[in-house]
Amino acid sequence: MPDKVLMKHISQGNQAAFTELYTRYKDRLFYFFFRMLGGCEDTSNDFLQDTFLKIIDKPELYNPSYPFSKWIFSIAHNMCKNEYRKREVRKIMVKEENTDKYLDNQEPITDTSQLVDMAFRKIDGLKDKSKEVLLLKYRENFSIQEIAEILEVSEGTIKSRLHYARLELSAIMPRTELKGVLS
């Protein structure tokens, strides 16, 4: 059953439809929050819950003429944006501390999972906008147009952000290193 139909059932109070929709998107959203908010499991769970609470509270806000995945990721994007603002106000610099710790670590790492973890620590060091564009493009497989609509910016901006994100990533993690992670 398409997401749109599930949303229609949810607005009519169908609990099975809600469970189905949650099952479809919980892992994708959890991953998005996990990577966007510094890899904290508790925070990711809280944000996942808040996203679906918004759907429960106001399912009528969803416009069926747009794809549901785009809508839910635009909610997730706005939540992350608000969180960044809050963190800016509170001056929480956890992200930088973690990145520095890993970047300074000069011990050779051989385990693949550790290599992937280290690579993502480096990605955490990217600008939030770059990281978000990379996640939506390469993890979620959204098109440039869809990402532009989710982030409410022009397609040109997205292309530019992707270009700079790749450059930024190449600077902190050369291709050879990435190949090592992938192998």
């Binding site: 959890f30 991953y31 999972s113 990379l134 390469y138 993890r139 190449s170 291709r175 992938l182």
Partner: peptide, 21 residues
């Protein structure tokens, strides 16, 4: 030395965060 699109796609798709909701 730029990271290719294909490498990035493989990298992100194969990423396992080791925790679930």
């Amino acid at each position: 030395n730029n990271v290719s699109e294909k490498d990035l796609a493989t990298f992100f798709r194969n990423d396992k965060i080791g925790s679930s909701p």
